[in-house]
């Protein structure tokens, strides 16, 4: 896969920027080219937040993603906004605890995952983002499944080192769940 453009979208507080950062560090450690660009501005408060992560084997042109190869939609407004921007043949991951409707397109691969519910069952209701990330790593080989912890250490600040294990567990659960 030469260039993969991933858009992760949800509302503020769902950790979409964090999930993107994790992927970015994972790609960095695999010596891939990458860029990470958050949406910034008034829409971050209460509305949708998103981040664009490009992972590539070649130098990256624009870090701005208009037509993602992969969309992770963590809430309905994000799916509404970005569903039609995904390239034909692309992949959409739908957070199906919060999004009740199905994807309307038939030219993309779709995975429905009740990540919020799964995260709650793990005792980590805030980690739906990492459950989805685990699923992404399983279905789309943009980064490898090895050494997840090394990349996590880069994004989980030392102040919150106690949260490393639960983040890892969330990723692994998302990775192994069927659906």
């Amino acid at each position: 896969m030469a260039v993969t453009q991933i858009l992760i979208a949800g509302f503020g507080g769902q950790g979409v920027l964090f999930a993107g950062k994790f992927l970015a560090y994972k790609a960095l450690m695999e010596e891939k080219q990458l860029s990470w660009l958050p949406s910034y501005g008034p829409e971050m408060r209460g509305g949708t937040a998103n981040c664009s992560v490009t992972i590539s084997d070649e130098p990256i042109g624009s870090p701005i993603i208009t037509n993602p190869d992969i969309l992770i939609a963590m809430n309905l407004p994000s799916l509404e906004k970005f569903e039609n921007t995904v390239v034909p043949g692309g992949v959409i991951f739908v957070e199906s605890t919060l999004i009740e409707r199905k994807v309307k397109r038939d030219d993309v691969t779709v995975y429905y995952l009740p990540a919020t519910k799964i995260a709650q069952e793990l005792g980590a209701p805030g980690l739906a983002n990492m459950v989805m990330t685990g699923k992404l790593i399983r279905e789309c080989p943009v980064v490898s499944h090895d050494h997840l912890e090394d990349a996590l250490r880069k994004v989980v600040s030392s102040r919150h080192a106690d949260l490393l294990d639960i983040n890892l567990k969330a990723i692994e659960t998302g990775y192994s769940v069927n659906g």
Binding site: A24, L28, L34, Y40, P63, I64
Partner: peptide, 10 residues
Amino acid sequence: DGTLGQTMEP
């Protein structure tokens, strides 16, 4: 510009 300011890259 704002994009380059906000973008993370290696």
